[in-house]
């Protein structure tokens, strides 16, 4: 057929598979794809279906995805092994406008699996460290067992200021952070909005509180970037499932500047 079928995915080989926590794992794919941090790919397991997964790395040589087992597709991906293949298409969506962030300091706030796309920003910054000023990282998880990217956390700590918290610690596990909500750590920290950008990714309730705290610290709405999550089928702004009022989460997002979506009733 003489046409470009945008829905046809291409095979991607898994070159690394890391179990991050009880229900979360990361896979590294042998794919060279130019993309921005915050963009996503559509992952297919033939026969099972397709799912939107955000890219959590920043490299021209490979693609890393962090996946939680929550549905049919993600469960099927978790059953794959190193050297197996799956199908992907993308990258899709608007990621973080890193060029606009240049010469600024960045406050990164993530909760749970929302840390995944933010990892892409950190890796981007690390490739061109002199383009950015201070990087503050606030990340929160439910328990120490849920902490993701333990391997990378060490290097983040040497290069940037990392504030880690867990909601509770029922098993009294040793970890390098505080017990409490990540919003508390953010509240206590001392910085203002001058030359700063804040990026948030996490559950909607966390985003709501974090935006409030940032505004108290003097941040303008156009200095705050948030990510949204919706059901996606096509990834290219046709199928309609991901609409947040008039915005297509897949094409206009998933990263929005806060002032673009704050007035949407369905945000």
């Amino acid at each position: 057929m003489a046409k470009d079928n945008i829905y046809v995915p291409t095979p991607a080989k898994i070159i690394d598979y890391v179990i991050e926590s009880g229900d979360t794992f990361s896979i590294k794919l042998d794919v060279k794809m130019e993309h921005d941090p915050g963009q996503f790919v559509m992952c297919s397991i033939p026969g099972i279906g397709e799912s939107a997964i955000s890219i959590c790395s920043f490299s021209r040589d490979y693609l890393e995805l962090n996946i939680r087992e929550v549905g049919n597709v993600t469960n099927a991906i978790s059953r794959l092994k190193k050297d197996d293949s799956l199908l992907i298409r993308g990258p899709y969506g608007h990621g973080y406008p890193m060029d606009d962030f240049k010469d600024n300091s960045i406050v990164i706030i993530g909760g749970g699996s929302g840390v995944a796309p933010l990892k892409g920003i950190i890796e981007y910054v690390d490739t061109r460290r002199s383009d950015f000023k201070y990087i503050d990282i606030f990340i929160g998880y439910r328990t120490p067992e849920d902490i993701l990217f333990k391997k990378q956390l060490k290097s983040w700590k040497t290069n940037h200021k990392v504030h880690l918290s867990v909601d509770k610690n029922p098993n009294k596990t040793k970890f390098d952070g505080k017990v409490g909500f990540v919003t508390e750590l953010l509240k206590q920290s001392d910085f203002d909005n001058k030359g700063r950008i804040a990026v948030i990714c996490g559950p909607p309730i966390m985003i709501k509180f974090v935006v409030g705290i940032l505004k108290d610290k003097g941040f303008n709405e156009d200095q705050i970037f948030v990510s949204a999550e919706r059901m996606m089928q096509c990834g290219v702004g046709f199928c309609g499932h991901c609409m947040i009022n008039g915005k297509y989460c897949c094409k206009d997002g998933p990263v929005f500047r806060y002032d673009e979506i704050k007035d949407l009733p369905e945000k």
């Binding site: 057929m1 995915p9 297919s44 033939p46 197996d84 293949s85 199908l87």
Partner: peptide, 16 residues
């Protein structure tokens, strides 16, 4: 039909 798949390859359907 949008495309055909076989294990881990996907192929366009021939529709005219």
């Amino acid at each position: 039909p949008i495309f055909k798949y076989d294990k881990t390859t996907a192929k366009d359907v021939n529709s005219k």
